[in-house]
Design a binder for these strands. Sequence first.
RNA 1: GGGCCGUUAGCUCAGAUGGUAGAGCACCUGACUUUUAAUCAGGGUGUCGUGGGUUCGAGCCCCGCACGGCCCA
Length: 496
Amino acid sequence: MQYHDNSLINSRLIKLNKLLELGIDPYPARFKRSSDIYTAIDKFSSNEIDDSENLNNTDKVTLAGRIMAIRSMGKAKFIDIRDFSETIQVLFRANVLEETFGLLEHLDIGDFIGATGHIMRTRTGQITLHGDEFTILCKGIRPLPEKFHGLKDTETRYRQRYLDLIANEDVIKTFTNRSKILNGIREFLNGRGFMEVETPVLVATPAGAHAKPFVTFHNSLDETLYLRIATELYLKRLIVGGFDKVYEIGRVFRNEGIDQDHNPEFTLLESYESYADYNDVMNMVESLVSELAIKINGKATINWDGHDIDLTPPWKRLSLKEEILNRSGIDLDDYPDDLSLTNKAKSLGMDIGDLENRGRLIDKILSQYVEPNLIQPTFIIDYPEIMSPLAKSHPQKVGYVERFEAFIAGMEIANSYSELNDPVIQRKRFEEQEEIREMYGDEELDRLDEDFLVAMELGMPPTGGLGMGIDRLVMLLVEQVSIRDAIIFPHMRSQK
RNA sequence: GGGCCGUUAGCUCAGAUGGUAGAGCACCUGACUUUUAAUCAGGGUGUCGUGGGUUCGAGCCCCGCACGGCCCA
C-alpha cells in the first residue's frame, strides 16, 4: 500500500520519526496497567470523598487505551483514552509533566498511550485522570474515521470491520451480544446434559441438507472434497456410537446467493437428543430462544424491522398442509405428483418451469405464500416425506413426516425432525433423492452417504434432531435486519 | 440472472440548466493551565470508482466495466 503522497499519513510519519530521533520507542513490547478504565472509575466513584482539590485522596492508577479525542488548551491538554471497558479523560499539564509535555505534540487520535496519575473531578464534575506521566504504546500512522458522524459507508464497514468497531459503538454491542448468545446456547444445552462435539468440515459426500456445496481438492490424497453443508449425518453417527445428547455449533458452507439473510458460510447449531421426538425439540427451541432474549435484552419481546415480536412460549404450531391450503388455496393431497402440482402452481401465476419436482414446488409455495406471514414465532409442522429424506414418517398422516420448521419475522430459523432410524427406509429415501436429482438435474437435493447408512444399519435410538441458524437468531435478538450486521466479517466480493 | 439507486478530501456529505471542485469534522500553523462535538485566527490537503465517447469545455450527458446497497427471480 502506497501512502507517501497522503498528507494525513505523512504528518503522522513525521511525528513518528521525531519520536524515533528523540530515542523514544513508539512501539514498546509491554505495559502494565493497574486495571481497566471501568474498574478504576468504579473504584474512584465508590470511595469518593468530597475533596476534589486534594489529588492525593485516591491511589495512583495506571491506565491505557486508544486516544479518541485531544483538546489542547495551551499548557494543558485533555486527552480521551478508551479501552474495551470505558473511556476516560486524561488531563496533562505542563507544570506537572515538565519537559515531557512537549512530547504530547507528537500524539494523534488513534494512538495508544498509557498514563499514570490520580483520578479526580474537574470543575464541571467530569471524572478525569490527572496524569503525572505517560507512555506512548503505539503510534498510528493512518487517520481514524471522524468521531461525530461515525463511519457509515457499508462497504468500508464490512470490509474493514476494525474501523466500524472503532467508530461505531453499537457495533461493539452487537458482537458482544453475539458472543453472549453463543455462550447462552452452550450453557442452555450443557445444562440439559448435551455434549459439544466437532465433526469434519472437509467431507467426501456433502450430505444432510438441500444445498450446493463448495468443492475443494486434497492434493496428497488426490481426492475431491467438499465443504460441509450440514453436520447432521456425523452427529447421528455419534448417537449411533452411544452419545445420548450431542450438539455442534459450527460453520457450514452453501454455494448460493448472498442477500439480507444468506451468507455463503454461516453458523449452524445442530443438536441430537436420544429418546426425544420433534415435540420435545419444539419445547426446547421455544425455551432456548425466549431465554436467550431475556438474557440479552432483559425481556422476551423484540422489535424487529417495525414488528413487535413476542418470543414467549408456547409458540403457535400450524400444520404445513393446512397453512398452505389457507394461504394459497392449494390442497397438496389433491396434487400428488410433480406434473399436477406444477400445473396448479402455474395456474396461480407462480414463476416456475414446465415441470418441477414436488419437493422444490412445495418449498416455493411455502416461501411465497406462507413464510412472509409468519411474523410471530410459529412452528410449521408435518412436512411431505418427499422433501424430508432424513425424517421419520408420521404415524397418522400418510406421506408426511414428523418435522417442523420454526419461523420468526418471516425467516426460517430452525428445522427439526424425529430422526428416521429405519435403515431400510432410509436407504430407499436416499435412492429416491438421487433419482430425482438425476431426473431434474437439481444439484441441491440431498446425497446418499454410504457410511452413514452403515451406521444406521447398526441401529440408532429414537432421536429428536435440530438445526438452527445462529446468524439469523442473532439478527433477531440484536434487532438487525441484515445478516451482514450479525456476522462480524460478512462475505464480500474480492476487490480487484 | 433482471431492475433501480449509489461511488466527490481521511470521515460525513453538498455540488440547478455542462463553464476554474465546496462545507463540517479530521489535519497543518499560531493563541490559550479544568476543556469536553473546547474556543479563536489563518491554511483546502482531490486520479470526482474505472475505461471509452459526445462537446470548444464533462463531477454532471451517452456507452461499457468494477464494487456496494435495495427490490425482483
